[in-house]
């Protein structure tokens, strides 16, 4: 478990909390999304569910790559949503609203994540 960094600052605690939430959202998307594919439905959910879960795990490990991955997943989600329902407001609501709110939170965490990552890698190098 050495990959997980024990949070030292409020920002780090917030990032961990956000990461846990993202994992909790990603897992049911992946699990139920797999069943949907099995039943002949859309592939979007299982793919995005795995990506989001991975993003959350990476963020929990203090990796900025996790945040980038989540933002990329939301970007893909927007494109997919437009492809599936066009510019219909009611149709877009469940697809992009919640994920985008989370994306804003992730975006706000990104500088802190970067700092943590730099500090971590610096300290690792110094030890080495």
């Amino acid at each position: 478990m050495s990959a997980f960094v024990k949070p030292q600052t409020p920002a780090a605690w917030a990032i961990l909390g956000l990461a846990v939430v993202i994992v909790l959202l990603g897992l049911p998307l992946a699990y139920m999304g797999a069943e949907l594919v099995f039943l002949g439905g859309s592939w979007y959910y299982v793919i995005i569910g795995i990506a989001v879960t991975a993003a959350g795990v990476l963020m929990a490990m203090g990796r900025a790559m996790g945040a980038i991955l989540y933002l990329a997943a939301v970007g893909v989600t927007w494109l997919w949503a437009f492809w599936e329902v066009g510019f219909d407001g009611w149709g877009l609501l469940p697809r992009v609203f919640g994920p985008t709110i989370l994306a804003i939170a992730v975006l706000l965490c990104l500088p802190a994540l970067r700092r943590m990552e730099n500090a971590h890698s610096t300290s690792v190098r110094e030890v080495a």
Binding site: P28, L29, L39, W90, G91, F97, G98
Partner: peptide
Amino acid sequence: WGMSPIDQLYCRLKYR
């Protein structure tokens, strides 16, 4: 439909 991707997915499953 739904409020979030998860409950929307739940309804997609019900549909399928």
